[in-house]
């Protein structure tokens, strides 16, 4: 219940945060809302010597409309994502999924960027980022770089963000004209997803012309269900076609087994829930 000791740096800017990390060495941790980090500290699963608080960095607290995309500051809270007008209008998948993260109190402080940087395989928002091909803006001693979602999520609790770097913002493409749905399957309302499916589809004249499907907790990182996407595109937006396409949802995944579900059940769920998520995204 009691964290180990650490030094605390409240960064006023991204540059200050990067400088603080450089000074701290390998044992530093970035604190956004702290909703993933604090439990880790309380249980002493990690004991950083320096905490760099970026929650007050203005640049990381804003949402910018870039035309074809939204640049969402990494310290924008899950609650703000749920209620932000531009996000609700242009990336409703993200707003909807945000409303399913943890519980209201956690959403008030937890951040979109923090969820992605924490990279829990059961996290909901990383999967949405993966489905949408989001880009991650990372600042470090050498300046800024941008990493696509496919390269960002590396492994269990591991991303492309290096110990001396800070995730500054996430660029999320707008999907105007697409339908979307995040299907979260969990045992209790506050529990982590056993499996989650983020689906976005574009339907034109009864035909699916675009599809994005990604899966939560079906491997160390969010998994893109590419074979489902290719099976959907060009096909009719019918329950039968969607169910058929969803049969390959678990292909190429490597889900874990834990107290809530064994791997084979997760694979089964991935197929069933993908069909449901895509159907809802397609409005049927």
């Amino acid at each position: 219940m009691i964290p180990s000791t650490f030094d605390y740096v409240k960064a006023g800017s991204v540059d200050e945060a990067v400088a603080a990390l450089a000074e701290a060495g390998d044992d530093a941790k970035v604190l956004g809302g702290g909703q993933s980090l604090l439990p880790v500290l309380r249980l002493r699963l990690n004991a950083p010597t320096v905490i760099v608080d970026v929650s007050g960095v203005d640049e990381m607290r804003t949402v910018a409309d870039e035309g074809g995309s939204l640049l969402i500051g990494a310290a924008v809270t899950t609650y703000e994502v749920m209620h932000h007008d531009a996000i609700k209008a242009s990336v409703p998948l993200l707003a909807q999924a945000a409303g399913l993260v943890a519980d209201p109190a956690i959403r008030h402080r937890g951040t979109f960027g923090g969820s992605c940087a924490h990279a829990d395989p059961a996290g909901d928002l990383p999967t949405v980022a993966r489905a949408l091909d989001a880009e991650f803006v990372i600042a470090g001693p050498g300046g800024r770089r941008t990493v696509g979602a496919s390269g960002f999520f590396v492994d269990y609790f591991t991303t492309a963000v290096q110990p001396d770097e800070v995730l500054v913002a996430v660029r999320v493409p707008k999907l105007d004209g697409w339908g979307a749905h995040y299907e979260k399957f969990h045992r209790t309302a506050q529990a982590w997803a056993i499996v989650g499916v983020a689906a976005a589809v574009k339907v034109e004249g009864g035909t699916i012309t675009g599809a994005r499907v990604a899966l939560t907790n079906m491997g160390p990182s969010p998994v893109r269900a590419s074979s489902v996407e290719s099976a959907l595109v060009g096909g009719p937006a019918t329950q039968e076609a969607i169910s058929a396409a969803a049969q390959s949802a678990a292909d190429g995944t490597s889900p874990t087994s834990d107290t809530h579900a064994q791997a084979d059940f997760r694979e089964h769920l991935a197929r069933v829930l993908t069909a449901r998520a895509v159907a809802k995204a397609a409005g049927i």
């Binding site: 519980d103 045992r187 209790t188 309302a189 506050q190 529990a191 982590w192 107290t259």
Partner: peptide, 10 residues
């Protein structure tokens, strides 16, 4: 997180 107790929502 692992030993599940129901909330009002459940």
């Amino acid at each position: 997180g692992d030993y599940l107790l129901p909330s009002a929502a459940d």
